[in-house]
């Protein structure tokens, strides 16, 4: 009898755990049937011919087509294969993100808040302690479009090695955009023209390019911004020890980019961005690119 007494609470706990399990398991099974998405696909830049080859969503081992408005779930991977293709997604953790071949595959995480009366009640009680947001008027002149601004590579003509896949980010302007590389002067020959609906693009400097060129971003309102390019065969003078000493290749790419960004004069900024973009889906590289697009410059 004396040994049996401690068993009673243990049995009670086991029974409680079993009851909890029985109660929770059907709920879990139901949740699997009624998953809450993490977000949606809100834009596509895919070739008209065979878009399925250019990009897809990988879900539980299966390829799903990329479609506008398609739901994305936790664990999905957005895969973009085609160099000129991109998929724009809006998810709970990424907000709005343009996934191109450089940043592919992009793994989706999280789930949208599902709401419900009790979470609504909690949110509303929380609202009581929040001050009201300042109101903003929209007049008929302001069209909510900021001026098109390109802040990367504006310090000096940018040296680039022909054949390099470069990355460009800008702000403002009205989509869609066209990015052109052409010879300087009015009516200069166009070497490449790349369409974009987002505010960044990856494009290749043609291997035949040489000498001074112009890189121009033009929006749908015909506003344009330019930077000067200088195609040259010599690669940038990045010391080999940076990449050799880096713990990972991606880390080495970012470190090399930072080294280039510190050079005077600032003629390797676009080449640095190209290096960072080449690091693939690497958080530090993405952060660097985002800041470069916003106009950040290292103290040289």
């Amino acid at each position: 009898m004396t040994r049996a007494a401690p068993l009673l609470p243990a049995l009670r706990h086991a029974l409680a755990a079993l009851l909890v399990l029985v109660a929770v398991m059907p709920a879990m099974a139901r949740d699997a049937d009624m998953r809450t998405p993490a977000g949606y696909i809100v834009g596509m830049e895919l070739p008209a011919t065979d878009p399925g080859m250019a990009a897809h969503v990988q879900r539980e081992g299966q390829k799903m087509p990329v479609q506008i408005g398609g739901a994305l779930f936790d664990g999905d991977e957005v895969v973009v294969r085609d160099a000129g293709a991109a998929v724009t997604i809006e998810t709970v953790n990424d907000r709005q993100l343009r996934v191109d071949a450089t940043h592919s595959p992009h793994r989706v995480t999280g789930a949208l808040p599902s709401g419900g009366r009790f979470s609504a009640l909690a949110a509303m009680i929380g609202e009581l302690f929040e001050s009201k947001p300042a109101a903003r008027t929209v007049n008929l002149i302001g069209r909510n479009d900021e001026t098109l601004r390109l802040q990367m590579g504006r310090g000096a003509a940018q040296r680039m090695v022909p054949g390099t896949r470069l990355w460009l980010g800008w702000q403002g302007g009205a989509a869609p955009f066209t990015i052109e590389i052409r010879a300087p002067g009015e009516g200069g020959a166009v070497l490449s023209a790349t369409p974009a609906t987002g505010r960044s693009a990856a494009l290749t400097l043609p291997s035949t390019a040489s000498g001074p060129l112009v890189l121009e971003v033009r929006d749908s309102a015909d506003e344009a911004v330019q930077v000067g390019l200088l195609a040259q065969a010599d690669p940038p003078p990045v010391p080999a020890w940076i990449s050799e000493g880096a713990p990972t290749p991606a880390f080495g790419q970012v470190a090399s980019a930072l080294w280039l960004l510190e050079r005077k004069p600032a003629e390797w900024d676009l080449q640095a961005a190209a290096l960072a973009a080449d690091a693939g889906h690497y958080a530090a590289a993405e952060e660097l690119l985002r800041r470069l697009a916003e106009g950040w410059k290292p103290k040289r």
Partner: peptide
Amino acid sequence: PDLAAPQFITRDGRRVP
């Protein structure tokens, strides 16, 4: 975005926004 608003409803056994 508004957390206080109900985000999903159940329709025909499916959870839809």
